[in-house]
Simulated scan of single mutants.
Amino acid sequence: MNAFQEKLYEHHSQVFTMDADLYQARTKFQDVLIFENRLFGRVLVLDGVVQLTERDNHIYHEMIAHVPLMAHGAAKRVLIIGGGDGGTLKEVLKHPVERVVLVEIDDDVIELSKRFFPQVSDGAFEDRRVTLVIRDGVEYVTQAEAKFDAVIVDSTDPIGPGEQLFTTAFYERCRNLLRPGGMIALQSGAPFYNPEQLDSVCSRLARSFHAVRPFLAPVPTYAGGMLALVAGGEDHKALRPPIKALREQFDRLRPNTGYYTPEIHRAAFTLAPAFTPAPKRLAKPERPPLPDQLVPLTILSKINESLR
């Protein structure tokens, strides 16, 4: 039986059976592999890294879209950088937005997603409120004059085409495109395997946004099953509104979500995406580790401070 092995992190990999090989080629920017797996359905792989599956993509898309838009409460204009599969776009369009601009560098990803994963976008690209721009995301935010209520960076990991979307300069340009009260949301990888990336993203965002808070999305097909997302805005409390306000807005929208709820919105920020490293081996195995040997990563202190 054929199998695909993802080797994103050193000393760890995950394997998917390839029950059917559907597509394999290289676009102008990246290698693309699409195959069928009996558990997760169709799987999209870019440059050797799993991007989405039919079974669990909605968790990621709902969390990266609904958290900033529900927190904002009145977003009318939204900018999506990346997201060529259309899943985040579909979720954004469940809100009463007036215009959504989606900027994708690789138009082949859009066409392949429409062909092999039509239910992910579910016709979102044809919505009259959508403007599709095939362009480098950094170039767009540098030259754009339009203002937005929310910016969602639905990018790959900081390798290949996605690398330039994780810089301080890029975040500052995104901030300049936001209206007062505007928010940003982006993904920051699996924090268990790469805590330095999350720490770096939070630190860089904090140079442009007064409030920066990471939150979790449990996506089984991402390494470790826990994906770190990060939201930024003008106020910490605005990113995590009172449950009553979230419920009232959710009841008005009824956005037909499979995972996101107001309760999950607040809980995702409470479950801080920082993991205590295993204690070092001690000379005397019977001696238990002291509490101060289990100090979490530096980002946890920042998170705890923001939650006060």
Rank of each mutant, 00 (worst) to 15 (best):
P242V: 04
E6L: 05
Q249W: 01
T53P: 03
F209L: 10
D251N: 08
P218M: 09
L102Y: 00
P279Y: 05
L132Q: 12
T298E: 14
P191C: 05
F250L: 03
N2C: 01
L46F: 13
F116W: 12
R175K: 15
L89T: 04
N176M: 08
Y60G: 07
V219M: 01
E10H: 12
P218A: 09
V97N: 03
P273I: 05
L216G: 01
A124E: 05
E104G: 09
R179A: 14
I64G: 10
A217R: 04
M1I: 01
R287M: 12
L69Q: 13
A169W: 03
A267R: 13
F215E: 02
H95G: 03
R99D: 02
H210E: 12
H61R: 06
T276P: 00
K7L: 09
D251F: 01
P279R: 05
D251W: 01
D108M: 14
M183R: 14
P262A: 06
Q14W: 04
E91R: 14
R179T: 15
Q164N: 01
V109W: 07
A206E: 13
D31W: 10
L46A: 02
T27Y: 09
R55E: 15
P180N: 04
P68A: 09
L102M: 14
D235L: 01
Q143V: 05
A223S: 14
Y9K: 09
V230R: 13
D47I: 02
P161H: 13
V133Y: 05
R42Y: 02
T168P: 00
R207Q: 09
V133I: 13
Y193C: 03
V153E: 05
L22I: 15
S13N: 11
Q143S: 14
Y260I: 02
I64Q: 12
Q24H: 14
V201N: 09
A238L: 10
R38F: 03
T17P: 03
F125L: 10
A71T: 08
E286T: 09
H72N: 15
I264A: 12
V15Q: 13
R128V: 14
E36A: 04
P279K: 09
A245W: 02
G189M: 11
A274N: 08
A245F: 00
V295E: 10
R77L: 02
E91P: 04
K147R: 14
K244G: 02
E6H: 02
H11P: 00
S301M: 07
N57F: 13
A146Y: 00
Q30D: 06
I159N: 11
L198Y: 06
A231E: 04
F116Q: 02
C174W: 06
P242A: 04
D149W: 06
S121C: 07
P279C: 11
D127N: 15
A185C: 15
L186W: 08
R26C: 01
A75S: 15
H72S: 10
A267H: 14
M70W: 07
Y171Q: 08
Q5P: 00
H95A: 07
K280G: 08
L198S: 06
P288A: 13
P191I: 03
G160M: 10
V141Y: 11
V212K: 02
L186I: 12
P279I: 11
R247F: 01
P161E: 13
Q197A: 12
R38Q: 11
E248N: 10
L165S: 13
R281C: 02
G41K: 04
S121H: 04
Y222E: 03
I80Y: 11
C174T: 10
P279G: 07
H210P: 01
A20S: 08
Y260F: 08
D136M: 11
R266P: 00
V78T: 10
